[in-house]
Amino acid sequence: MSLIIAYVGKKGCVMASDKRRIAYFGSEENRNSLEEEIYSGRISSDEELHKRANEFKVAIKITDDANKLRTIEDAIVGEVSSKGSFEVKRKRIYGTTMGYQIVELVGSEIVSRNKHEKAIVLFGNKYSKTLAEKLISQKWKPSISLKFMGDIFEEILEEVANQTPSVGKNFDVFIKNPSMDSQSAQKYLDEIVDRDIKLLSKFRQKLEEDLLENKKTIELASKIIDEGEIGEVVEIDNNMLKVVLNEDVQAFNGNWKQLAKPKDEVVMISEKEDEINIGDKVVIENEKLCLEKNKSNLMCDIILCNL
Rank of each mutant, 00 (worst) to 15 (best):
Met1Leu: 05
Ser2Met: 10
Leu3Glu: 02
Tyr7Asn: 04
Val8Cys: 12
Val8Leu: 00
Val14Lys: 04
Met15Ala: 09
Ala16Glu: 01
Lys19His: 05
Arg20Glu: 03
Arg20Ser: 02
Ile22Cys: 05
Ile22Leu: 06
Tyr24Asn: 01
Tyr24Pro: 01
Ser27Cys: 00
Glu36Trp: 00
Ile38Lys: 01
Tyr39Phe: 15
Gly41Arg: 00
Arg42Thr: 10
Ile43Arg: 00
Ser44Asp: 09
Glu48Lys: 00
Leu49Asn: 00
Leu49Tyr: 03
Lys51Gln: 15
Arg52Cys: 02
Asn54Ala: 13
Glu55Ile: 10
Ile62Cys: 05
Thr63Glu: 13
Asp65Met: 09
Thr71Cys: 08
Ile72Ala: 03
Ile76Gly: 03
Lys83Met: 13
Lys83Gly: 00
Phe86Glu: 13
Val88Trp: 13
Lys89Ala: 12
Lys89Val: 12
Ile93Thr: 05
Ile93Gln: 02
Tyr94Met: 07
Tyr94Arg: 04
Gly95Leu: 05
Thr97Phe: 06
Met98Leu: 12
Tyr100Thr: 02
Gln101Asp: 06
Glu104Trp: 06
Glu104Tyr: 11
Glu104Lys: 14
Val106Tyr: 10
Val106Ala: 10
Ile110Phe: 03
Ile110Tyr: 01
Ile110Leu: 03
Asn114His: 15
Asn114Lys: 15
Phe123Ser: 01
Asn125Arg: 05
Asn125Trp: 00
Ile136Asp: 01
Ile136Ala: 04
Trp140Thr: 08
Ile144Glu: 10
Lys147Gly: 08
Phe148Val: 08
Asp151Met: 09
Glu154Lys: 14
Glu155Ile: 09
Ile156Gly: 01
Leu157Thr: 01
Glu159Asn: 11
Pro165Arg: 02
Ser166Gly: 15
Gly168Ile: 01
Gly168Gln: 02
Asn170Ala: 11
Phe171Tyr: 14
Asp172Ile: 03
Phe174Asn: 06
Asn177Asp: 14
Asn177Trp: 01
Pro178Asn: 08
Pro178Gly: 05
Pro178Met: 07
Met180Phe: 14
Asp181Met: 04
Ser182Arg: 10
Gln183Gly: 07
Ser184Asn: 12
Gln186Cys: 08
Lys187Met: 11
Tyr188Phe: 14
Asp190Cys: 00
Glu191Trp: 06
Glu191Phe: 11
Ile192Arg: 00
Asp194Trp: 02
Asp194Asn: 15
Asp194Tyr: 09
Asp194Arg: 13
Asp196Pro: 02
Lys198Met: 10
Lys202Ala: 12
Lys206Ile: 09
Glu208Ser: 12
Leu211Arg: 15
Thr217Ser: 10
Ile218Ala: 12
Leu220Ser: 07
Ser222Pro: 07
Ile225Gly: 02
Asp226Leu: 07
Glu227Ser: 10
Glu229Val: 02
Val234Trp: 11
Glu235Gly: 04
Glu235Tyr: 14
Ile236Trp: 07
Met240Arg: 12
Met240Thr: 13
Val243Gly: 01
Val243Pro: 00
Val244Pro: 01
Asn246Arg: 07
Glu247Asn: 15
Glu247Arg: 15
Ala251His: 06
Gly254Tyr: 12
Trp256Phe: 14
Pro262Val: 04
Lys263Gly: 00
Lys263Gln: 08
Glu265Ile: 11
Ser270Asn: 03
Asp274Gln: 09
Asn277Gly: 11
Gly279Trp: 06
Cys290His: 07
Lys293Ile: 13
Lys293Met: 03
Asn294Val: 04
Asn294Met: 00
Ser296Thr: 15
Met299Thr: 05
Cys300Glu: 03
Ile303His: 09
Cys305Ile: 08
Cys305Glu: 09
